[in-house]
Amino acid sequence: MKTRFSIRKVIYALAAATLPALVSMPASAQAPDITRIVVGFAPGGVADALARVMADKIRTQVGGTVLVENKTGASARLAVQAVKAAPPNGKTILISSPSPISIFPLTYSKLGYDPDKDLIPVAHLAQVRLVASSGVGQPYKTMAEYVAWVKKNPGGQGVGLVTMGSPTHFGLLAMAKSIGVPLTPVPYKGTPPIITDLVGGSLPLSIDAIGAQMELYKAGKIRFLGVTGTERSPFFPEVPTLKEAGISGFEEASSWFAAFVPAGTPPATVSMLEKALIDATKDAQVRAKMATLAMEMTGYPGDTLRKMIQSERAHWKPIAEASGFKGD
């Protein structure tokens, strides 16, 4: 009993001596050092994959733990709003696609945020090409043949896409105008049902990201008729751009992912994150991993990203206004 009493006394004495020191420790020493990368998409998609690779690579530069938070809902607007409301200390980073930043200010009267005032562009990370796809059972093998076919078949004017009010949507409207056919956007809840209808032959054409379709293309289950952008995809150089195929409207429609932080974040912190993220996009392992999703790493600085956003918005503004589409 005496031995137990002595040990207990020592434990109590150590606790009593340590407690004041713990209480006096600064909050930063008590709380874990966590950086959050917020994405507005569910786990398992290309945005989530990119965020997790970035989180792993910037860990040593930013220090502490880097976590990915999937904040889905409202077409990724909830993610933007969450980052807007976060402390401007560099510990919350948004990775976004173009629509919430470049397009939604044109289509929502009550957006809940102003991307130009509430966010600071940090770095452009990657480009993701869209591709016009069809099933192998369709009678056309090129975009020129598709245009000739759709002009003769008014019932085949539906084109599958994932998001209304997006560059894909407005690019399709521009394409319809360029070929003189009133194409109809057919919204889907995701890429898998689009692929099902393409392979089954009930959907004549779709325009969606390459990544989720590339294995089916390689297996000969679907055809790639043309990619977006002004240059051919480095992953599929045999596929012409839509512009090369005589289709206007998709030069500015390739998707991308970029990083942002809340307004008010100190310039030195922004510069540190910019360097960390750009360095990550140049890493050979990162590029190899993202190549499996047909994601082209870019690594443009924040100032370049800001100019790209303004240019994109200016490009899509007259098309969005002419369409009359509203996201509200």
Rank of each mutant, 00 (worst) to 15 (best):
M272H: 12
M272C: 01
M272E: 14
M272T: 14
L273M: 06
L273W: 03
E274M: 04
E274H: 04
E274I: 00
E274W: 06
K275N: 12
K275I: 06
K275G: 14
A276E: 09
A276I: 08
A276G: 12
A276S: 13
L277A: 12
I278T: 01
I278F: 04
I278A: 06
D279K: 09
D279H: 08
D279C: 11
D279P: 06
A280P: 11
A280M: 13
A280S: 15
A280N: 12
A280C: 12
T281Q: 03
T281G: 04
T281C: 06
T281R: 07
T281S: 07
T281A: 07
K282L: 13
K282Q: 15
K282E: 13
K282D: 10
K282S: 12
K282G: 10
D283M: 09
D283A: 10
D283E: 14
D283S: 11
A284I: 08
A284Y: 03
A284S: 13
A284K: 14
Q285N: 05
Q285I: 05
Q285M: 03
Q285L: 06
Q285P: 00
V286C: 05
V286K: 02
V286M: 14
R287G: 15
R287H: 07
R287Q: 15
A288I: 02
A288Q: 11
A288S: 12
A288N: 06
A288K: 15
K289V: 07
K289E: 12
K289F: 05
K289A: 15
K289H: 08
M290K: 02
M290G: 02
M290S: 00
M290T: 01
M290H: 03
A291L: 04
A291H: 01
A291V: 04
T292C: 05
T292Q: 14
T292L: 13
T292E: 15
L293H: 09
L293D: 08
L293W: 12
L293F: 10
L293E: 09
L293V: 00
M295C: 03
M295N: 01
M295Q: 08
E296A: 03
E296P: 00
E296R: 06
E296L: 11
E296W: 03
E296D: 10
E296V: 11
E296Y: 06
E296N: 05
M297E: 00
M297A: 04
M297G: 02
M297Q: 02
M297H: 01
M297K: 01
T298L: 14
T298P: 05
T298V: 15
G299V: 04
Y300Q: 09
Y300V: 00
Y300F: 10
Y300H: 07
Y300N: 07
Y300E: 11
Y300P: 00
P301V: 07
P301E: 15
P301R: 10
P301I: 06
P301M: 14
P301C: 13
P301S: 11
P301K: 09
G302P: 05
G302I: 06
G302L: 07
G302W: 07
T304E: 08
T304P: 02
T304G: 10
L305I: 00
L305F: 02
L305R: 01
L305W: 05
L305D: 01
R306N: 09
